[in-house]
Design a binder for these strands. Structure first.
Lengths: 354, 354
DNA sequence: TCTCAGCATTAGATCGATCCAAAGACATTA
DNA sequence: TAATGTCTTTGGATCGATCTAATGCTGAGA
């Protein structure tokens, strides 16, 4: 007879380990062993217990396990209030990836709402004390982020999505190599024949922004292309980007690499203002592959972060850290990928044209 | 002396109720009462216990409480894999709102990853059995959604974000009055002088889409405006929308109300194709207030869902249901709000112009 | 003086699983 | 035969809180 997967009683699942034990004619401890150390049981006993387990639809109570083992199999995640449209338009994808990776490892994500304003410690202490959370995933890590040091000090496992940008590195992290992304963007543009490639970035001082600028710069240098006068800075909103990019266009840039899709969109506006079209007259590359990028017209080439992989790696590093608190720090830098769309369709002005 | 908020021992918080009791010179039960039924204690005892509690930084262990009270104070939420950019570009806002509302009520959100493809039951049973989740919030409810009936059958409290669109209503829900949103959009356009107002919707059969279409239709009728030949249908992607809207424009529509921002963007493309500009030549209204809407040029007028309020109401209804499983169903329909931007800036063609 | 409310507090069992140590079964060896 | 060892299985305590029921205490009324 195939193993029955009969559903548990309609009214919740008050099936306890003891009940399974009675049914299988063994002691509770044996049932526990059947689940946690099957190799301790004689094969026939194991089979009998397993049969009882799924005939009764037994599921161990996490609360009881947590109480006894002091491990909740929960991973805390502080969800930030949605910022002004700029950073993290893709956090739900990341969250899904995290959840999935955690589920597959037998863990679950426990959410709590972070207060607005920069990253703070609020909430973390409570989750630790009340829920015995096994670890945390941090996102939107920032300069002067107090969380890593605070968690490290009390020996709580955590992984940051984002490396430390100031001071020494603390703890484990997973990050996306922004420099590599903009570097690839420049490569792509150079291959299309562009030489006057500008960079539209955030004001210096943000780790992420500086990293992405760096990639542009090194690729330019590698190709012997000048960067002077080809870089502008702008705050995170479209309007600021639009005016910030003008000098670059005036200086004859044939391509713009932007530090974010939002800023790339600012380029779109600036171009349209002077009756030029992205992709046809000036190539534009964004960063993040936000939902907007794919539906713009012309669609925006952009650097996509491998969020699913980031989620998986976060969970992997976190589990490793829990297994061995003294292990050397795990740091994973993932490669983003360039998504080529219409905004970089046309060849650069120096390219041989028909 | 002000109540001390000294931090707990740096190494986690192994402070138990019994330790607090010893320190305060009372029995464990009295400490428990101090927290859960303070009115049972003599004021001076209460004060003494409270002092001990926060001197020691005591936090009750959720695991132990869950085990004893069979209530985990957890709310389950199945997070869907990010769909093709169309539905739910705003789910992270909703999640934050949920988390915040839950936190304030002493609950937390427990995430699990839903498998791709329509809503299924996978995951719900496991959370129930293992974690004793107190209830669920469902989102992306769909026609033929099996979850409501399944949960209702086993007496599990839940709230849907989205009413039932087929069959009879089951359980509690919170929803946004889509019809009211499109109705308001039409009102706004009529006030600007528009009379040939078209609707670009999804294929009939989706509850949400039909609801939004209904609002347009009733507002048109109220103003004695014809709707024949002013309605087109399109799948959820921009390309499909672009071609679907053409006949409407050919028929002389001066304004288009779209069922989503994505479809509205399709209008943008179609207009640009014929050298017309949204807002100047043809007014366009979207739905959802996605991040894209605000950064387009011209910025897109759109109907915004009150996601924070939806989150709050979801939690409120859920708590009410837990408190009284037999209470009559709670159903809350919230009003969306029209966000007027540049795409509806110019007066309609029939308006008296300068 | 004794009983009997009424109040504040306490004792002990309990939720469901896992830890530890010890007991039983069985074959092997002195 | 008794002692030794291996391999399974079991008993009882335990995690930290809350439940029920019972206790000690006080003062009012008989």
């Amino acid at each position: 007879m195939p193993r029955s997967t009969s559903s548990p009683s309609p009214k919740g699942s008050p099936v306890t380990l003891a009940m399974v034990a009675r049914r299988a004619g063994v002691s509770p401890q044996t049932v526990s062993n059947a689940i946690n150390s099957p190799d301790l049981l004689r094969p026939e006993t194991l089979e009998r217990v397993r049969a009882a387990i799924d005939e009764m639809g037994y599921r161990p109570s996490r609360a009881a396990q947590t109480l006894r083992t002091r491990s909740s199999k929960l991973i805390g995640y502080g969800i930030q209030p949605v910022p002004g449209g700029d950073t993290a338009p893709v956090m739900d994808r990341f969250l899904h990836a995290l959840s999935q990776a955690a589920d597959e490892a037998g863990y679950r994500m426990l959410l709590f709402a972070c207060p607005p304003g920069g990253p703070s410690l609020e909430g973390y202490e409570e989750l630790l004390g009340q829920h015995d959370v096994d670890g945390f995933v941090l996102s939107n890590t920032a300069r002067q982020d107090p969380r890593q040091a605070w968690l490290a000090k009390r020996g709580v496992p955590f992984v940051g999505f984002g490396r430390m940008w100031s001071g020494r590195q603390i703890g484990d992290w997973v990050d996306v190599d922004g420099a590599s992304g903009t570097d690839a963007a420049v490569e792509h543009l150079v291959a299309l024949g562009h030489r006057r490639i500008a960079f539209l970035g955030w004001p210096r001082g943000s780790g992420v922004g500086d990293d992405r600028a760096e990639g542009w710069q090194r690729a330019m240098r590698r190709h012997g292309l000048p960067t002077r006068g080809r870089r502008a800075e702008s705050a995170g909103d479209v309007e600021a980007a639009r005016s910030a990019v003008k000098p670059l266009l005036d200086a004859g840039a044939t391509a713009v690499v932007a530090v974010s899709d939002t800023l790339a969109l600012g380029c779109y506006h600036a171009l349209r203002e002077r009756d030029a079209a992205p992709g046809r007259d000036v190539a534009v590359v964004g960063f993040d592959d936000s939902p907007t990028a794919g539906i713009l017209s012309p669609s925006l080439s952009t650097v996509a972060q491998p969020l699913e992989a980031v989620g998986r790696e976060c969970v992997r590093l976190l589990l490793a850290r829990m297994a061995d608190p003294a292990a050397s720090p795990g740091r994973v830098l993932l490669e983003p990928s360039l998504v080529v769309r219409d905004s970089t369709a046309a060849p650069g002005s120096d390219a041989p044209g028909p």
